[in-house]
Design a protein around this nucleic acid. Sequence first.
DNA 1: GTACATATATTGACCGTCGATATATATTGA
DNA 2: TCAATATATATCGACGGTCAATATATGTAC
Lengths: 106, 106
Amino acid sequence: MREPTFLILTALADQPRHGYGIIQEVDTLSASRVALLPGTLYTALDRLAAQGLVERDRDEVAEGRLRRYYRLTDNGLKVLDAEAARLRQLATVAEARLRAVRPRTA
Amino acid sequence: MREPTFLILTALADQPRHGYGIIQEVDTLSASRVALLPGTLYTALDRLAAQGLVERDRDEVAEGRLRRYYRLTDNGLKVLDAEAARLRQLATVAEARLRAVRPRTA
DNA sequence: GTACATATATTGACCGTCGATATATATTGA
DNA sequence: TCAATATATATCGACGGTCAATATATGTAC
Protein backbone atom coordinates (compact mmCIF):
# COMPACT_ATOMS: atom_id res chain seq x y z
CA MET A 1 0.00 0.00 0.00
CA ARG A 2 1.29 3.45 -0.93
CA GLU A 3 1.55 6.43 1.32
CA PRO A 4 -1.51 8.46 0.17
CA THR A 5 -3.73 5.38 0.51
CA PHE A 6 -2.37 4.65 3.97
CA LEU A 7 -3.04 8.21 5.09
CA ILE A 8 -6.57 8.15 3.71
CA LEU A 9 -7.35 5.07 5.80
CA THR A 10 -5.70 6.65 8.82
CA ALA A 11 -7.76 9.82 8.38
CA LEU A 12 -10.93 7.71 8.48
CA ALA A 13 -9.89 5.64 11.50
CA ASP A 14 -11.53 7.78 14.17
CA GLN A 15 -14.61 9.09 12.34
CA PRO A 16 -16.32 9.33 8.95
CA ARG A 17 -15.09 12.24 6.85
CA HIS A 18 -15.96 13.75 3.49
CA GLY A 19 -13.40 14.11 0.71
CA TYR A 20 -12.21 17.58 1.44
CA GLY A 21 -12.10 16.77 5.15
CA ILE A 22 -9.81 13.85 4.34
CA ILE A 23 -7.50 16.17 2.40
CA GLN A 24 -7.25 18.47 5.41
CA GLU A 25 -6.79 15.62 7.86
CA VAL A 26 -4.01 14.07 5.77
CA ASP A 27 -2.30 17.43 5.78
CA THR A 28 -2.48 17.42 9.58
CA LEU A 29 -1.47 13.78 10.00
CA SER A 30 1.57 14.19 7.81
CA ALA A 31 2.58 17.57 9.21
CA SER A 32 1.97 19.06 5.75
CA ARG A 33 4.45 16.65 4.19
CA VAL A 34 1.77 15.04 2.03
CA ALA A 35 -0.60 17.23 0.05
CA LEU A 36 -3.33 14.87 -1.09
CA LEU A 37 -4.51 15.83 -4.57
CA PRO A 38 -8.14 15.45 -5.70
CA GLY A 39 -7.14 13.07 -8.48
CA THR A 40 -5.46 10.80 -5.97
CA LEU A 41 -8.20 11.02 -3.38
CA TYR A 42 -11.28 10.32 -5.43
CA THR A 43 -9.79 7.52 -7.47
CA ALA A 44 -8.44 6.02 -4.24
CA LEU A 45 -11.85 6.23 -2.54
CA ASP A 46 -13.48 4.42 -5.47
CA ARG A 47 -10.80 1.75 -5.40
CA LEU A 48 -10.93 1.31 -1.63
CA ALA A 49 -14.72 1.05 -1.76
CA ALA A 50 -14.44 -1.65 -4.45
CA GLN A 51 -11.96 -3.47 -2.19
CA GLY A 52 -14.31 -3.22 0.76
CA LEU A 53 -11.94 -1.19 2.94
CA VAL A 54 -14.11 1.92 2.88
CA GLU A 55 -17.80 2.52 2.37
CA ARG A 56 -20.15 5.39 1.72
CA ASP A 57 -21.57 7.05 4.78
CA ARG A 58 -24.21 9.78 4.68
CA ASP A 59 -24.45 12.71 2.28
CA GLU A 60 -24.84 16.15 3.80
CA VAL A 61 -25.37 19.62 2.48
CA ALA A 62 -23.47 22.21 4.49
CA GLU A 63 -23.45 25.89 3.50
CA GLY A 64 -24.86 25.11 0.10
CA ARG A 65 -22.19 22.53 -0.72
CA LEU A 66 -22.46 18.77 -0.93
CA ARG A 67 -20.43 16.73 1.51
CA ARG A 68 -20.07 13.05 0.69
CA TYR A 69 -18.92 11.09 3.73
CA TYR A 70 -16.93 7.88 3.84
CA ARG A 71 -16.12 5.52 6.69
CA LEU A 72 -13.76 2.61 7.30
CA THR A 73 -15.22 -0.89 7.21
CA ASP A 74 -14.26 -3.48 9.82
CA ASN A 75 -11.95 -4.99 7.26
CA GLY A 76 -10.50 -1.56 6.47
CA LEU A 77 -9.64 -1.18 10.13
CA LYS A 78 -7.90 -4.55 10.18
CA VAL A 79 -5.97 -3.80 7.01
CA LEU A 80 -4.85 -0.44 8.39
CA ASP A 81 -3.76 -2.13 11.59
CA ALA A 82 -1.71 -4.72 9.69
CA GLU A 83 -0.25 -2.05 7.44
CA ALA A 84 0.86 0.09 10.37
CA ALA A 85 2.59 -2.93 11.90
CA ARG A 86 4.30 -3.62 8.59
CA LEU A 87 5.59 -0.04 8.34
CA ARG A 88 6.86 -0.17 11.89
CA GLN A 89 8.67 -3.42 11.18
CA LEU A 90 10.27 -1.98 8.06
CA ALA A 91 11.45 1.07 9.98
CA THR A 92 12.81 -1.09 12.79
CA VAL A 93 14.78 -3.37 10.48
CA ALA A 94 16.35 -0.44 8.65
CA GLU A 95 17.14 1.44 11.84
CA ALA A 96 18.83 -1.62 13.31
CA ARG A 97 21.04 -1.81 10.22
CA LEU A 98 21.87 1.86 10.38
CA ARG A 99 22.78 1.65 14.07
CA ALA A 100 24.98 -1.38 13.43
CA VAL A 101 26.86 0.49 10.73
CA ARG A 102 27.24 3.77 12.55
CA PRO A 103 27.35 2.88 16.25
CA ARG A 104 28.69 6.30 17.28
CA THR A 105 26.51 8.54 15.16
CA ALA A 106 23.18 6.72 15.37
CA MET B 1 9.78 5.53 -1.88
CA ARG B 2 8.18 2.13 -2.40
CA GLU B 3 8.81 -0.97 -0.36
CA PRO B 4 11.14 -2.90 -2.73
CA THR B 5 13.36 0.17 -3.13
CA PHE B 6 13.48 0.72 0.61
CA LEU B 7 14.49 -2.90 1.21
CA ILE B 8 17.20 -2.74 -1.45
CA LEU B 9 18.77 0.24 0.31
CA THR B 10 18.43 -1.50 3.66
CA ALA B 11 20.10 -4.63 2.29
CA LEU B 12 23.08 -2.50 1.25
CA ALA B 13 23.34 -0.59 4.52
CA ASP B 14 25.84 -2.87 6.25
CA GLN B 15 27.97 -4.05 3.29
CA PRO B 16 28.20 -4.10 -0.51
CA ARG B 17 26.21 -6.91 -2.10
CA HIS B 18 25.67 -8.24 -5.60
CA GLY B 19 22.23 -8.48 -7.18
CA TYR B 20 21.37 -12.00 -6.21
CA GLY B 21 22.72 -11.38 -2.73
CA ILE B 22 20.34 -8.43 -2.42
CA ILE B 23 17.43 -10.65 -3.40
CA GLN B 24 18.35 -13.11 -0.65
CA GLU B 25 18.92 -10.39 1.91
CA VAL B 26 15.57 -8.76 1.16
CA ASP B 27 13.95 -12.13 1.66
CA THR B 28 15.61 -12.32 5.08
CA LEU B 29 14.90 -8.71 6.06
CA SER B 30 11.23 -9.03 5.22
CA ALA B 31 10.81 -12.50 6.74
CA SER B 32 10.00 -13.80 3.23
CA ARG B 33 7.14 -11.34 2.89
CA VAL B 34 8.78 -9.59 -0.06
CA ALA B 35 10.15 -11.66 -2.94
CA LEU B 36 12.27 -9.23 -4.92
CA LEU B 37 11.98 -9.99 -8.64
CA PRO B 38 14.85 -9.51 -11.10
CA GLY B 39 12.88 -7.01 -13.14
CA THR B 40 12.34 -4.88 -10.06
CA LEU B 41 15.88 -5.23 -8.76
CA TYR B 42 17.93 -4.40 -11.81
CA THR B 43 15.78 -1.50 -12.95
CA ALA B 44 15.82 -0.19 -9.39
CA LEU B 45 19.62 -0.47 -9.17
CA ASP B 46 20.00 1.49 -12.43
CA ARG B 47 17.59 4.14 -11.18
CA LEU B 48 19.20 4.39 -7.73
CA ALA B 49 22.64 4.69 -9.34
CA ALA B 50 21.36 7.51 -11.57
CA GLN B 51 20.00 9.20 -8.43
CA GLY B 52 23.31 8.81 -6.65
CA LEU B 53 21.96 6.67 -3.81
CA VAL B 54 23.86 3.58 -4.88
CA GLU B 55 27.07 3.03 -6.81
CA ARG B 56 28.93 0.20 -8.47
CA ASP B 57 31.43 -1.59 -6.29
CA ARG B 58 33.78 -4.30 -7.55
CA ASP B 59 33.02 -7.12 -9.99
CA GLU B 60 33.93 -10.61 -8.90
CA VAL B 61 33.86 -14.03 -10.49
CA ALA B 62 32.86 -16.73 -8.02
CA GLU B 63 32.42 -20.35 -9.10
CA GLY B 64 32.39 -19.37 -12.74
CA ARG B 65 29.63 -16.78 -12.32
CA LEU B 66 29.86 -13.03 -12.43
CA ARG B 67 28.97 -11.11 -9.31
CA ARG B 68 28.37 -7.39 -9.74
CA TYR B 69 28.53 -5.60 -6.41
CA TYR B 70 26.78 -2.39 -5.38
CA ARG B 71 27.18 -0.19 -2.33
CA LEU B 72 25.30 2.67 -0.70
CA THR B 73 26.63 6.18 -1.20
CA ASP B 74 26.80 8.64 1.70
CA ASN B 75 23.71 10.24 0.33
CA GLY B 76 22.02 6.85 0.01
CA LEU B 77 22.65 6.29 3.70
CA LYS B 78 21.12 9.65 4.57
CA VAL B 79 18.09 9.03 2.40
CA LEU B 80 17.56 5.60 3.94
CA ASP B 81 17.82 7.13 7.39
CA ALA B 82 15.22 9.78 6.58
CA GLU B 83 12.97 7.22 4.96
CA ALA B 84 13.08 4.93 7.99
CA ALA B 85 12.12 7.87 10.20
CA ARG B 86 9.25 8.69 7.89
CA LEU B 87 7.93 5.12 7.99
CA ARG B 88 8.16 5.06 11.76
CA GLN B 89 6.24 8.32 11.97
CA LEU B 90 3.52 7.02 9.67
CA ALA B 91 3.18 3.87 11.76
CA THR B 92 3.07 5.89 14.97
CA VAL B 93 0.36 8.24 13.74
CA ALA B 94 -1.82 5.38 12.53
CA GLU B 95 -1.31 3.34 15.69
CA ALA B 96 -2.28 6.32 17.85
CA ARG B 97 -5.51 6.63 15.90
CA LEU B 98 -6.24 2.93 16.19
CA ARG B 99 -5.62 2.96 19.93
CA ALA B 100 -7.89 5.98 20.37
CA VAL B 101 -10.69 4.22 18.54
CA ARG B 102 -10.35 0.82 20.20
CA PRO B 103 -9.01 1.57 23.69
CA ARG B 104 -9.87 -1.89 25.02
CA THR B 105 -8.68 -4.03 22.13
CA ALA B 106 -5.51 -2.19 21.11
C1' DG C 1 20.63 -35.83 -17.65
C1' DT C 2 17.27 -33.34 -15.42
C1' DA C 3 16.02 -30.23 -12.13
C1' DC C 4 17.21 -26.62 -9.16
C1' DA C 5 20.04 -22.81 -7.33
C1' DT C 6 22.91 -19.10 -8.71
C1' DA C 7 23.45 -14.90 -11.46
C1' DT C 8 22.44 -10.90 -14.62
C1' DA C 9 19.39 -8.65 -17.92
C1' DT C 10 15.34 -6.93 -20.84
C1' DT C 11 10.53 -6.24 -22.07
C1' DG C 12 5.50 -5.16 -21.85
C1' DA C 13 1.64 -4.77 -18.82
C1' DC C 14 -0.32 -2.92 -14.87
C1' DC C 15 -1.56 0.11 -11.03
C1' DG C 16 -1.55 4.15 -8.13
C1' DT C 17 -0.21 8.84 -8.02
C1' DC C 18 0.52 13.36 -10.08
C1' DG C 19 -0.74 17.37 -12.50
C1' DA C 20 -4.01 19.71 -14.92
C1' DT C 21 -8.55 20.88 -15.77
C1' DA C 22 -13.54 21.42 -14.89
C1' DT C 23 -17.57 22.98 -12.27
C1' DA C 24 -19.98 25.35 -8.50
C1' DT C 25 -20.81 27.88 -4.08
C1' DA C 26 -19.38 30.80 0.05
C1' DT C 27 -16.37 34.09 2.03
C1' DT C 28 -13.04 37.73 2.29
C1' DG C 29 -10.96 41.90 0.99
C1' DA C 30 -9.74 45.68 -2.25
C1' DT D 1 -18.46 45.02 -7.36
C1' DC D 2 -15.20 42.36 -8.60
C1' DA D 3 -11.32 39.34 -7.75
C1' DA D 4 -9.18 36.06 -5.10
C1' DT D 5 -9.37 32.35 -2.03
C1' DA D 6 -11.45 28.43 0.43
C1' DT D 7 -14.66 24.76 0.10
C1' DA D 8 -16.21 20.69 -2.45
C1' DT D 9 -16.49 16.87 -5.95
C1' DA D 10 -14.96 14.83 -10.26
C1' DT D 11 -12.39 13.27 -14.59
C1' DC D 12 -8.41 12.64 -17.66
C1' DG D 13 -3.70 11.80 -19.60
C1' DA D 14 1.01 11.27 -18.28
C1' DC D 15 4.36 9.21 -15.48
C1' DG D 16 7.04 6.07 -12.51
C1' DG D 17 7.97 1.80 -10.12
C1' DT D 18 6.72 -2.92 -9.76
C1' DC D 19 5.20 -7.32 -11.62
C1' DA D 20 5.32 -11.15 -14.63
C1' DA D 21 7.40 -13.30 -18.17
C1' DT D 22 11.26 -14.43 -20.79
C1' DA D 23 16.20 -14.98 -21.96
C1' DT D 24 20.86 -16.68 -21.16
C1' DA D 25 24.51 -19.22 -18.73
C1' DT D 26 27.00 -21.94 -15.08
C1' DG D 27 27.33 -25.06 -10.90
C1' DT D 28 25.34 -28.59 -7.97
C1' DA D 29 22.44 -32.38 -6.52
C1' DC D 30 19.72 -36.37 -7.46
